[in-house]
Write a protein that binds this DNA or RNA. Sequence first.
DNA 1: TAGGATTTTTGACATTCATCAAAAAATAAA
DNA 2: TTTATTTTTTGATGAATGTCAAAAATCCTA
Lengths: 158, 158
Amino acid sequence: MFSKNEYLVTEGQRCRHIYFLEQGALRGFYNLDGKEITHWFAFEKDFVTSFHSFSTQQPAVENIQLLEGSILWAISKDRLTGLLNQYHDIERLLRIAYEKYYIRLEDRYVNAQFKTATERYQTLLLQTPHIIERVPLGYIASYLGISQETLSRIRSRI
Amino acid sequence: MFSKNEYLVTEGQRCRHIYFLEQGALRGFYNLDGKEITHWFAFEKDFVTSFHSFSTQQPAVENIQLLEGSILWAISKDRLTGLLNQYHDIERLLRIAYEKYYIRLEDRYVNAQFKTATERYQTLLLQTPHIIERVPLGYIASYLGISQETLSRIRSRI
DNA sequence: TAGGATTTTTGACATTCATCAAAAAATAAA
DNA sequence: TTTATTTTTTGATGAATGTCAAAAATCCTA
């Protein structure tokens, strides 16, 4: 149980857990040229972690912050490793989970690089309409890779 | 052994193999609004496949084309599945390979969405300088998400 | 519910980049 | 080598988006 605006992971710190988000909302962001860039959101039933840091156990380059009071379950890297050694099936589940996450990221990548700002916003509306009600526009703008002003203008135009 | 400009995978066709590229160069691209968008390149010692199609066995949305005559090794989905069932260790290797590929894609994603065209080109020069000599500029431009003219101007400016 | 803080919108202007067209350069073929 | 083809560069112009500043709207909280 964590409360709004708390941090799950902070830049520079090693991320030792994968979390399951039962209830609430999170964002992952990092600092680029003095600006906070939100690069993902997570909602109910998502698994979250600072993937790079968790996987390599290097210091995280990103921050994970609570957007709402949330209920989270955590499993540590060590405990997960134990489970993987003990149960072949978990290794397989994880491999398949990675496949799915990879495909999703590929999709986002294409979307990010080759669609216009307006198209990206419309895709977001279609795929996850609830984001709009739960997340400040500024965060959404940086998630879409545009300025808040531009997002505001896109919204007024639609 | 395949020769220049041949296709390994074509849009609409199911991709049933993962390939190991021993020698040569490939690109993955798809058609968007009548334009070919190159979204990755592969060179010696890379594993390649149309990931989404291979994983889900849905028809591919992308094409894989030879940029040079190349030597490739293939393993079919069925044979790989057999190996995964037989050897726990291969499941683990695959899971770890996916981790690495995921992290790499995450990196590219950030790069694509939040860096300027010039920065993206400079990163490319730094990370894979040999691309420039082996791949036409037009492909590189679309890989970077800019027009060929803009890339040409960036090059003259540096 | 009134005042303060935060978030969103609007305006003016500068910059980046795409597009279309054509010239120049490089590469391949005869 | 000469010609044809492909690739790269250059020029002119317009559209999309960023930035800075301020106004308007919304939301907290006392």
